[in-house]
Nucleic acid binder design. Structure first.
Lengths: 183, 183
DNA sequence: TCGCCCATGTAACCGGTTACATGATTTG
DNA sequence: CAAATCATGTAACCGGTTACATGGGCGA
């Protein structure tokens, strides 16, 4: 069984928005997919070059003007869209998830009870912060990008983040109660 | 910033249960941590050896008897427990999550609507299957291992899986409705 | 001038999976 | 007898991050 990186498809998908440089793609990922996907420059730049040699994207150098610096923008080609659709409509492999917090909780018998509470409180804060961010992004999305062709799908993924954070918060408060009742 | 594999801590944590061979550790992971952690033999065996040279575990060869095959069982040492606790009570880094389903959904404008529905239905089935498995494990855990010192923590992590699957199912049915209403 | 952001790139490294080899024992 | 499971191990490979280099522009 061979593995195949999904980085290429992430980049192709992003380039269905508009043409972008590697640097802009990185920013887009951080701002939009950050909570369920990420890529480093060490992946983005070489993958863009590989996509270009495969003719799935085309590169154009934008030369330095006043107020702008030179950059290389990439545009998805027809073949690129074909390849993207193949992946989109193909089977989805479940990602190998590794949750360090759950792993620690599984072994929590070995944690000092005070430290355990601290750990859970930190997780609570993290999720509360995430929730706030997601909700403010959703507000902004509904105000400024309502007409964007991808708007509904962006809301779908964002709602997942919101529901996930809310569920986790409920679960955390539940286990906090049980731990304080019984220890 | 250096990275440090968590595999060693996962193994140390598991060995707080009882002494086990590499093979048994693998089975334990699959049966108990499977939905939020996994390790391959290619990691387990070399890591066990490294833990042994660091004196965090001790190895004993169980020679072949009638009905049993020879195997090497590993036992956590006092230093091992110290190192485990250091990790447990240290800071928890959030794992880099990559959710292929969400990535596809984010780009779903490029998916044929019938195929999109199929994709969502598959995700629904996957979550329903997971939920059933988690619930049966929970039943079994409450019947057979109620007295186990780790019982409550096992239930906590399991409950997370259950709540997560339920939340995802709700969210999936919500987006299904919205897609069928508006397309 | 200093630090920050824009912008591109790559080499070294690491963590992990896959695929294989070996061989015993058990089960259908 | 074949297939599955028990049991250990490793080499090749891959995907990804980190850390670095380079250099221009811009604001404090």
């Amino acid at each position: 069984m061979k593995r195949e990186s999904k980085t290429q498809y992430a980049l192709l998908g992003i380039l269905t928005q508009c043409e972008m440089s590697g640097y802009e793609i990185k920013k887009f990922i951080e701002e939009s997919l950050g909570f369920f996907w990420n890529e480093s420059f060490g992946q983005i730049y070489p993958t863009l070059k590989a996509l270009e040699t495969d003719r799935l994207v085309s590169a154009t150098e934008i030369v330095s003007q006043e107020n702008t610096k030179s950059k290389i923008v990439y545009k998805i080609t027809k073949q690129g869209i074909v390849e993207l659709k193949k992946w989109l409509e193909g089977s989805t492999s479940k990602s190998t998830l590794r949750n360090e917090f759950l792993l620690k909780l599984f072994f929590a018998r070995n944690i000092d009870s005070k430290k355990l509470m601290e750990m859970i409180n930190e997780e609570e804060t993290r999720n509360l912060d995430d929730l706030k961010i997601f909700q403010s992004i959703k507000l902004n999305l509904n105000e400024e990008h309502k007409k964007h062709p991808d708007h509904r799908y962006w809301i779908f993924t964002l709602d997942y983040g919101i529901d996930c954070a809310k569920m986790t918060l409920k679960w955390l408060s539940k286990i906090k109660k049980e731990i304080s009742n019984l220890s």
